[in-house]
Nucleic acid binder design. Structure first.
Lengths: 205, 205
DNA sequence: ATAACGTTTGACAAAATTGTCAACAAAGAT
DNA sequence: ATCTTTGTTGACAATTTTGTCAAACGTTAT
């Protein structure tokens, strides 16, 4: 079989991403992943050497998968509101696929800090498209087209409103007394709600 | 030593809460916790029988610790804005102590779902003070004193804005290019920012 | 003093998880 | 057909983590 197959490798990666980032099973073992993929556990070691190596692979794969669109949207020369709208749309579609990705990255960072290692997944500076977008936010605030605070808070608000309802779905379902279907309906309304929140409509008494 | 000491038991609980909910070390072993507490690991089994039992104990302890204030604030007859202000203040003070508590509860729920068990930490309905507060939000929306959406989204926004910046601190620090001190300064401004976001000021052009 | 009790400890056993290896299978190249 | 390379498997070893137990300790009451 001299031609590289890599279909098993891809199967393992896809399964691991689903188990980790979609289902949020942070304690999943290599056996769990192998079972979910329907392959022999040894193959994980064959293709990735160790569980940790698989882990960094899937995190990087997922991050790259997300970067593409987001960067081109943020770097485009669309007007601020349209750009933000597109960004929310793209980002939330990704979130539905891998809601727990950020949670895993956070856990990963905490691990590295414990061993006093710098986190390999991070570059020194924040990504250029983000820095650029922050500048645009600043302009919009000065022009008075969005509430005056600081670009950093605007970004925090934006990410908070998008991500939190997805990663804490089980808790929120109980807190707000919603079943699965009801909660999913609410999630579908979020894009519009988020827009209305960060671009407040001025129709209050 | 016939008189119950319980100071070791309390030490273990406090340490476990710190390791789990403050430091976010989700992979911490019983040995890690024992080391952090400076006690023999066997004592964890002596006082709590198993790691899982310790886990449910600390989750319940932390939840009870948080409930008290929040419930009395939400059930008080303060005007809506003041009530919300107090709630944010109380909730965020708790969050600073145990930012990762909700993350752990979520992980716990996911575990239980995998075993097809109902989550023991949840009652059927959502807590009464929350249901009551949701009613008040509805009234405020109808009166036009806050932007019209639904109480559920208002709550989601509120929790999102409070919790997300704390649990994703490492990621946000990199994304926004802030060091520890700068990020903490930003966090200190959040209470006011959140108020301004959910009670929009109408000074836009 | 000693008996009783709760607490603490180290050594050990059990379980769970991960990693390694030699053997085997499959498929194209020679 | 045989060789070569890649992929796959099961058995095994190593490691990590958790749980158990008997013995020792310290304090108090008798």
């Amino acid at each position: 079989m001299p031609i590289k197959d890599c279909h098993t490798e891809k199967l393992i990666i896809d399964t691991a991403m689903r188990v980790f980032f979609t289902e949020g099973r942070i304690y999943a073992t290599t056996q769990d992943i192998a079972d979910a993929a329907g392959v022999n556990r040894t193959l994980i070691n064959y293709y990735f050497r160790s569980k940790k190596a698989l882990f960094t692979t899937v995190i990087n794969t997922a991050r790259e998968e997300f970067r593409g669109n987001a960067d081109s949207i943020l770097s485009s020369d669309l007007p601020f509101r349209e750009k933000t709208e597109k960004f929310i749309d793209d980002f939330m579609n990704n979130l539905i696929k891998y809601p727990y990705l950020e949670s895993f990255i956070t856990v990963d960072i905490i691990q590295h800090r414990l061993k006093k290692n710098a986190y390999p997944g991070f570059s020194e500076k924040s990504p250029a498209p983000i820095r650029q977008y922050l500048k645009v936010i600043e302009n919009e605030m000065e022009a008075g087209r969005i509430p005056k605070s600081t670009p950093v808070h605007f970004m925090m608000n934006l990410f908070s409103l998008m991500i939190y309802p997805l990663i804490m779905k089980p808790i929120q379902m109980n807190l707000l007394d919603l079943n699965e279907t009801e909660y999913n309906n609410v999630l579908n309304q979020r894009k519009q709600i988020i827009l209305d929140t960060i671009f407040p409509v001025k129709s209050l008494k």
